[in-house]
């Protein structure tokens, strides 16, 4: 346990020294907060830059606060995921490639601790960044539109966070046996994209897909009730995260560090 804490401390320190603890939360805040702001000022923006012919009358229905919050969340569907994958793509692979992983693991260091400390390290970074960003969106939505109840904010945060955690864990999984971080990012993103596309086009057949979690969260925000299919999707996401983590430990141990 003591060793595991040192490993985690190192992950945290590294992410402070390379400024991940600054830019990740910042990017997450910018991504989410711009949504309520642009939606609020949309009529003025169009008026200023739209160049609409004179006499055009545009009626914008004011979106509900829940709609705005849901729209903020969808910002993470593409850019957010891209950032998560890019920031985790070399978490183990780069250390193996450079050889520093071998320097550490010739010491009596547990392979399980090595992998799980990295997982927890990136999870902390993800959840803190996501919380900051989404909290910002909730706050601005509240100021510019209407405050969404905090309990609903927390529930949607947890649900969507599970999906983002799935993405992080999938990236870590490919890290456990591949050395090229570019390749890891490519494969992870391809899988996420395919999963999302198939799940939303075949949403009836694949209602249990973790990729639909983001849709379910949106529905929940709009309707105020959890969609029925969500339970399966949520459970599968959690089970996948655990399974991927265990597989990562197993594959990492099996691989020869020196090769």
């Amino acid at each position: 346990m003591r060793q595991w804490i040192f490993l985690l401390q190192k992950e945290m320190l590294e992410n402070i020294r390379n400024f991940k603890w600054i830019w990740m939360p910042l990017v997450f805040i910018i991504l989410a907060v711009q949504q309520p702001v642009t939606m609020y000022y949309m009529p003025q923006i169009i008026e200023k830059f739209g160049g609409l012919p004179e006499g055009t009358v545009l009626q914008f229905p004011t979106p509900s606060a829940e709609e705005v919050l849901a729209a903020s969340l969808t910002q993470y569907n593409s850019l957010g995921i891209l950032i998560i994958v890019l920031s985790t793509m070399g978490i183990i692979a780069s250390e193996r490639k450079s050889g520093v992983a071998a320097m550490i693991l010739v010491k009596p260091v547990s392979y399980t601790s090595f992998v799980t400390s990295k997982w927890i390290g990136s999870m902390l970074l993800l959840w803190v960044s996501f919380f900051c960003g989404y909290l910002g969106a909730w706050y601005y939505t509240g100021i510019l539109f209407e405050f969404v109840p905090f309990s609903i904010f927390i529930e949607s945060l947890l649900l969507y966070g599970i999906w983002l955690s799935f993405v992080t864990t999938l990236t870590l999984f490919f890290n456990s046996f591949m050395k090229s971080s570019g390749m890891i990012a490519f494969i992870t993103l391809t899988i996420i994209i395919l999963l999302s596309v198939f799940s939303s086009t075949l949403s009836n057949a694949l209602s249990w897909s973790p990729a639909l979690l983001s849709n379910y969260v949106t529905q929940y925000l709009m309707m105020g009730v959890f969609p029925e299919e969500m339970t399966a999707s949520l459970l599968l996401a959690i089970v996948s995260i655990i399974a991927l983590l265990i597989a990562s430990i197993f594959l990492f141990r099996k691989n020869e560090l020196a090769a």
Partner: peptide
């Protein structure tokens, strides 16, 4: 076992002292 590879690599962002203390603590 103490092992020195042919091309030793370290965490570049650490100082020499930090690295030694880190692996020392990892070794118990």
């Amino acid at each position: 076992i103490g092992y020195l590879p042919q091309f030793p690599v370290f965490y570049q962002w650490m100082s020499g002292k930090e690295f030694l203390q880190y692996v020392g603590k990892l070794s118990g």
